[in-house]
Design a binder for these strands. Structure first.
Lengths: 141, 141
DNA sequence: CGGCCTATTTATAAGCT
DNA sequence: TAGCTTATAAATAGGCC
């Protein structure tokens, strides 16, 4: 769309590349705005120049955040950042800890003992005896 | 860019709107690809049709995830705030559950009994007795 | 840089199948 | 509904300031 036709491959001349980026970046943001208005579509665009400068567009009445949330639900792809991963990992870790305690509690309450080995039963018995002993000492005071 | 000029406002005819969406969506994705190649730019585009169908583009050699990470760093805007909050809330909830179980376990093991009321001590004693009873029944089999 | 200009290339609106 | 066509509107390459 210009004085000459260009091939779609990296523009080697740094200056031309910058100029073309600037023009086309504006073009894309404009197109994004147009389709969102014309077609009632939700659009999110994020562009970084090769120099690392950021430009973005998001359709009115929503937010990039909401669009991306929808993207994840819809595509099944996960966009989480590192923080999310670490939070998710922590949840997994705590839940596991939780499960283990749950099991230990049940055992101490005499539940779910069927799958245990005699040795394990003895350890539980000792724990219960110790508990009772400590308790009685406390009650004696 | 067509047989007639159109105003940039919502296309009321549902059928025309769908057709225009389809054409322009392709146009934007093409433009996004072109600028990423021509100008060595990182581009991410997410589009939802008004019917909720998803289309997206991401420049080669990166990922939406990485682009968004960069977006957050660069813009200072937090995209995942809501998600973070809900994950953090879940962690808090589980941790509290965790703490309660921790305390119950300690009590059953005869620890940290100082602050308890006689009534509570009796409940623990009953729990321990019940546990032992169940255990002995199991061991007797 | 960021605009302006304008010859050309592209995108696309409307129509047709 | 999805393509294909074509007249026309828009985008933009290359210049210039």
């Amino acid at each position: 769309m210009g004085r000459g036709k260009i091939e779609i491959k990296r523009i080697e001349n740094q200056s031309n590349r910058q100029v073309t980026f600037s023009k086309r970046k504006n073009g894309i943001l404009k197109k994004a705005k147009e389709i969102s208005v014309l077609c009632d579509a939700e659009v999110g665009v994020v562009v970084f120049s090769s120099a690392g400068k950021l430009y973005d567009f998001c359709s009115p009445k929503t937010s990039l955040s909401r669009i991306l949330e929808k993207y994840q639900t819809n595509s099944g792809k996960i966009l989480w950042d590192e923080k999310h991963k670490s939070l998710s990992a922590e949840i997994d870790r705590i839940k596991k800890e939780n499960d283990n305690m749950q099991i230990e509690l049940r055992h101490l309450k005499g539940e779910d003992l069927n799958s245990l080995q005699p040795k394990e039963l003895i350890m539980i018995e000792e724990a219960l005896d110790n508990g009772l002993t400590s308790l009685h000492e406390k009650q004696a005071l």
